[in-house]
Design a protein around this nucleic acid. Structure first.
Lengths: 340, 340
DNA sequence: TTGTACGCGTTATCAC
DNA sequence: GTGATAACGCGTACAA
């Protein structure tokens, strides 16, 4: 590592002032060609490397944003995170990630830590839309964009999808295939508004088509493969099991498929399954997973653009963007074997 | 946002010096209970929040480490990244991620950018073990840990797995099942030493069992689902197609499985497939994927511990750790249909 | 136990 | 076009 050289060292060697060195770095055109070359030379001589942290300190801009997600290990969040990183990188920002594991306490802690680190704004996939974390950020007018949530109005900017509509369409797709007994493996409502909205779409769809709601057919679970497997087993062991299941995310859906198979069921004939997310792997398994596609990468990109605009005060008012989800009909859904 | 208050403000309100406030923050036990309470009170009064960036500037420690991986969207890297984040978090560090997309130029750029940001060390899953990026870091004795590579000696610390052995065992497993015509969907050698080592293990295993090496049976491809599908189709369209394929990672393997199915082949009877990684999804598809498990999360954790020790100068000498891979025999491999 | 004074590397505001 | 110098918020000798 050794000693870092500073603009002072460079200035001394090039026999100019530190101000000039700084100018060479930040606006070379304001410096005469001669001194400029001179300074570059000096930089090379003492192996100068720019200290972006010191700049941040002087300008009071960290050029970093905080990102809080449930966990980077879920491919859907990895996808949106990549979108965020790509845009941030483009604008000279970097991203500090915090994994909340769907726990509000963690979310709270992470926000505090990242604020100490002087992030200029937050992108949050929150566990509690009405919690204090969000409201106090809002109250301070701290730059903030919510990701994945369905938010149409209010003081908080959000880039998400219509989770209600997504849940509705997933269910409607099953109904249109002739299913009447439709289960749902829902994410825990305590995890987020998204879990609730997807379920609410499911429920409203049933109502619209005159199918009575049976609480037995709804299981709240973790957003994990294992939970999906367990949930499916539980539903299919009911006296009157469903002929189709809507799963709140693709991980649950893939788990459910495996659970059903382990019970000796054949897919999709014995059981139709719809997921939610549209992770890539879904089209690489058999049967290919029918799902509601969220444009995650795009969401990350758009969200970051909104946040950066907000940080640079280019926009003052909150913006609410709902990206379109898309029903991808693949092979995991079909007509029920014995539609009565 | 409003004006941030500093320790000066707190000092003024509490009628103490800034040094005392600083002490209250960093070593409260060195301050009398009375003044301490007094200071806390003042902090609350002016909504003081600690500025970790300023501390970093003053102490010349950013408390951040740089992480360079091919892409966070590959679950195996998401997994190790989570391990890194968890340990870093525990020690008050944060992680800045750079995605190289397996491109050396990107890797080079990212290292430069992160160095400007004063990261205290790097964890790199490198594209080129012998490239200048690594060697100059090493030359400067800049804290650095290589991840995923097979490195047994030399000046660079590394936490990885024995990719050669992994490739060997994957192939040997197929041989033990009676396969003689074994293809490989290898990662591009230009991507990394890991690609090469896995292939080298494959090749040596063939040799050991007296199976002649047929270049036709080896395809170098991207580490992606789509490439796996295409590669499998290409191999299975050969005049004399393989009865089994060893895939350089699980994504390629899952893609290959789907490609084979699309050709009307039935798995595993018509084609056995082994992957490499052990991503979770592998045990949730049918047939479950036989694979070489890398302990990714663990690798991230251990790697970070090594790096932090190195940063804190607790260790001076490079350490080389090879974690054990494990052959997970599942359903995607069986005996060839017509072993001749 | 507490206070004073300076340094960290850069930017920004004046002068010249 | 260039230079001198005061911030920026905190840590830390050293002194009291």
């Amino acid at each position: 590592m050794g000693i870092m050289s500073t603009i002072r060292d460079v200035a001394r060697i090039a026999e100019v002032s530190t101000a000039t060195v700084s100018r060479v770095i930040n606006s070379p055109e304001k410096v005469s060609r001669e001194t400029r070359e001179n300074v570059y030379q000096a930089m090379r001589l003492c192996h100068y490397t720019y200290n972006a942290l010191a700049r941040g300190f002087a300008t009071r801009r960290s050029h970093s944003i905080g990102l809080i997600i449930p966990t980077i290990t879920n491919p859907i969040f990895a996808e949106s995170t990549r979108g965020i990183q790509d845009v941030a990188d483009e604008y000279g920002y970097h991203v500090i990630i915090g994994n909340s594991d769907y726990q509000y306490k963690q979310e709270e802690r992470l926000v505090a830590v990242l604020r100490e680190r002087q992030v200029e704004g937050f992108m949050i996939t929150t566990t509690d839309l009405r919690g204090k974390v969000i409201s106090s950020l809002l109250h301070e007018r701290f730059p903030l964009v919510l990701l994945y949530s369905t938010v149409r109005k209010g003081g908080i900017s959000a880039v998400g999808v219509d989770n209600f509509k997504g849940g509705f369409r997933a269910t409607e797709h099953l109904v249109s295939r002739g299913h009447r007994r439709i289960g749902m493996l829902a994410g825990k409502f305590s995890f987020s508004d998204r879990s609730y909205h997807r379920w609410y779409g499911y429920r409203n769809c049933l109502k619209k088509y005159g199918i009575s709601y049976d609480p037995q057919l709804v299981v709240q679970s973790d957003y994990s493969l294992a939970s999906g497997r367990n949930g499916a087993v539980r539903l299919m062991n009911l006296n009157n099991p469903p002929t189709a299941i809507f799963c709140a995310n693709d991980y649950i859906a893939l788990g459910a498929m495996e659970g059903a198979r382990q019970m000796g069921l054949s897919l999709p004939d014995d059981l139709s399954i719809v997921g939610f997310d549209g992770i890539k792997i879904g089209s690489f398994i058999t049967p290919n997973l029918t799902t509601i596609l969220q444009p995650a990468y795009e969401m990350g990109k758009v969200g970051t653009q909104v946040l950066l605009n907000q940080i640079q005060q280019k926009i003052k008012k909150p913006v609410h963007i709902l990206l379109e989800t898309q029903l991808i009909e693949r092979q995991s859904t079909t007509r029920p074997k014995a539609s009565h």
